[in-house]
Simulated assay, not measured.
Amino acid sequence: MPRSRIQGVEIDLHAQPVSGLSLYASASYLSTKVEEFVGVNLFGLIEDFAGQTLP
């Protein structure tokens, strides 16, 4: 299991400026990073994945 760092934020907004009209908006941001992991890549070779982002 790779040691990783995952940080993020999410926001949801709701407004009803007039009766019968509702506005919704949302946004999210996610930052990921593998801190320590040595494994096998797609070509079958051993690779150090430290510093790469998670898919």
Rank of each mutant, 00 (worst) to 15 (best):
M1T: 14
M1V: 15
P2F: 11
P2Q: 03
R3C: 05
R3F: 00
R3S: 12
R3V: 14
R5L: 13
R5F: 09
R5V: 08
I6E: 10
Q7T: 08
Q7P: 00
Q7V: 08
V9S: 07
V9T: 10
V9W: 04
I11M: 13
I11E: 12
I11N: 13
D12N: 09
D12V: 11
L13H: 02
L13T: 07
H14A: 14
H14R: 10
H14N: 12
Q16I: 13
Q16K: 15
P17C: 00
P17G: 03
V18Q: 07
V18A: 05
V18R: 09
S19Y: 11
S19H: 13
S19F: 01
G20D: 02
G20H: 11
L21T: 09
S22M: 06
S22E: 14
S22L: 04
S22V: 06
L23M: 13
L23S: 06
L23T: 00
Y24C: 08
Y24G: 12
A25I: 14
S26N: 15
A27S: 15
S28D: 15
S28V: 06
Y29I: 10
S31H: 10
K33F: 05
V34C: 07
V34S: 06
E35K: 14
E35R: 13
E36R: 13
E36D: 14
V38E: 15
V38R: 07
V40P: 02
V40H: 12
V40C: 01
V40M: 06
F43D: 14
F43Q: 11
F43W: 07
G44K: 03
G44V: 03
G44A: 06
G44C: 04
G44R: 04
I46S: 00
I46C: 01
I46D: 00
E47M: 05
D48W: 02
D48H: 04
A50F: 10
A50V: 04
A50G: 11
A50L: 04
G51C: 01
G51S: 03
G51A: 04
Q52V: 03
T53E: 11
T53H: 09
L54W: 11
L54R: 10
L54N: 05
P55L: 09
P55S: 15
